[in-house]
Design a protein around this nucleic acid. Sequence first.
DNA 1: TGAATTCAAACAAACGTTTAATTTTGCCCC
DNA 2: GGGGCAAAATTAAACGTTTGTTTGAATTCA
Lengths: 207, 207
Amino acid sequence: MEYNQKQLTIINAAEALFAEQGFVGTSVRDIAQKADVNIAMISYYFGSKEKLMEAVFQLKSEKIKLKVDSLLADDSLFPIQKVHALIDDYLARFCKHQIFHRIILREKLAENETSIGTLLMEMRLKNLEAITKLIQQGQEEGSFKASIDIPLAMLTMVGVLNQMLTSIPFYQKVHHLEHLTEDELSGHVQQVFSDHLKNLFNKILLK
Amino acid sequence: MEYNQKQLTIINAAEALFAEQGFVGTSVRDIAQKADVNIAMISYYFGSKEKLMEAVFQLKSEKIKLKVDSLLADDSLFPIQKVHALIDDYLARFCKHQIFHRIILREKLAENETSIGTLLMEMRLKNLEAITKLIQQGQEEGSFKASIDIPLAMLTMVGVLNQMLTSIPFYQKVHHLEHLTEDELSGHVQQVFSDHLKNLFNKILLK
DNA sequence: TGAATTCAAACAAACGTTTAATTTTGCCCC
DNA sequence: GGGGCAAAATTAAACGTTTGTTTGAATTCA
């Protein structure tokens, strides 16, 4: 699907507002105002608020599955290094597309059989498939444990990352990091969680 | 605060609906219908939808902080056993009060300066305080590492538990557990996550 | 000139809340 | 114990807003 500049403006405005206030919490008028377009343009281009949400989701989730495939084919890295690279990739993605992942989390909480919910399950299954291959490489190579609950490992990583999203202010407060700029804080948190997750996965995966 | 039976009926209906559809996604009419009371009773008893939400939150979070204190005083357990007990307690709580924890997660995502958001931060700080004492016992006793990022450890546990809440259908699907009843599934998942978390925290905490 | 875009205005439906009338309840005094 | 009565509880209806969407005319563009 191709979108013109105006449509992309609307999609980006919607993404930000959906992430901040939720789907039902965001009115079409809010979106129109933020995107600086007339209200009617949203129905005109997307048909409905629901369809707009689908467009947001589809556009933003398109590019998400490529990394694992490139890692799978990379012969220059040890399996555990690939996992580390994957962690950093996920981490960067979560930080860069925070708002998008907030939407996903919101939708997972809703769990109503929305059209988004179905897209979401498909995405998770594909991700699991790819990650399974990655871990199997490590098992065949001999450095990984033979018995690993891969879905559980995946849930652990995503769970910690989601928690990071919703807990940065808390983490900042308890570690007295109020003096940092937003970017410094983000970088710091990213480093902390990168180390933490790699450490965790060494222990989960390695013999 | 004391509530009569009718008020409790309303609070419980609201809790379920807020968890399922979110705060904005739930109308006062929905709540009234589910609780089988007249619409006006909600304003009559609680003043507003917002105040009703506060009542839900307050009532359900009252009993949440007691466990840690009792563990702290217990001399019959090793520090790591206390942590294990805490994990099982959290886990049971998350499973039993799923819907309530969904609300909390939703509110953390919103992060607007609502009255609930403030209550939430206070709760987390209190929990952190208690858990810090628990871990310090282990450090002084010598079995725990000297350098532990306690907030990070806490976020890890809560993150994994939250992820469990939103991922049970996914976990069921990928492990082909469709033949289990809802209770069997819940029990199974609880056991898996209990083992997983204890294992994880052994590695995070112990020397 | 004809199709695509933009706009202010209007639409019905749903929202949270209030009103004013009615019923139920609890309690005092005879 | 039972009538009287004020407070509490409950109701249907209506309130004014805000919601998502549509309309039809105006404008832009090719």
